[in-house]
Structures are given as C-alpha cells and as structure tokens.
C-alpha cells in the first residue's frame, strides 16, 4: 500500500508543477484533471470513500468542463 501512496504523491507534485509550466492551456487542463485523479486515489487510500467520490465528480467532470468552456471563449495560448 505504501508503494502506491508514494508514487501517487510524486505524480501529484509533477502534474501540479507541469500545470504551472505549460504554455498551451489545453495541456494545463489535462494536467489539472490528472491532479484531481491522484487526489481521488489519495483520499481512497486514507479510507475516505465518500470524499473520494465527491472529488471524482467535481474534479474530473465539472472543473474540466468549466475550464474547457472558458478557454474556448477566450484564448488558448499563454503569451
């Protein structure tokens, strides 16, 4: 169990840093959905399945959809 928790924490760190460094905002949206995926796994490993379910619903579907619609209305590339 400790293996997958450690690996997941490193994934979360890498994905969050890459959100900061990507210039294409579409890539940033994909990476931020990866952050909430790893957060779901961490909540699950800490034995809180209800929080994990809420995080999955909000983080993966809702936040991704809202960000994508917002980027489509504005600009895709960061200057």
């Amino acid at each position: 169990m400790i293996i997958i928790a450690t690996v997941t924490v490193f994934f979360m760190l890498g994905a969050a840093l890459s959100v900061f460094f990507f210039k294409d905002l579409m890539n940033a949206v994909v990476a931020s959905s990866l952050v909430s995926l790893t957060a779901t796994v961490l909540f699950y490993l800490l034995q809180a399945p209800d929080v994990a379910m809420a995080e999955a619903a909000i983080g993966v579907a809702l936040v991704t959809g809202i960000f994508v619609v917002a980027i489509r209305r504005t600009e895709r590339y960061e200057k």
Binding site: M1, I4, V29, V30, S33, L37, T40, Y44, L45, Q47, P49, A52, M53, A56, A57, V60, A61, T64, G65, V68
Partner: peptide
C-alpha cells in the same frame, strides 16, 4: 485491487462512479 486488499465491499462503488464520471469528462474534452 486495493478494495480487495482492505477487504471492504463498499469501496467498489468508488471504482464504478469513477469510471463513469471520467468517461463523461473525457468525451467532453
């Protein structure tokens, strides 16, 4: 697999909900 290791039946629901919701998010993307 982790639900099997922890031996909790209720944890399977998280996997079901997760696969459903990520499918919707990926199709929207």
């Amino acid at each position: 697999l982790v639900a099997f290791i922890l031996e909790r039946y209720i944890y399977l629901d998280v996997a079901l909900v997760y696969s459903l919701i990520s499918f919707v998010g990926l199709v929207a993307l």
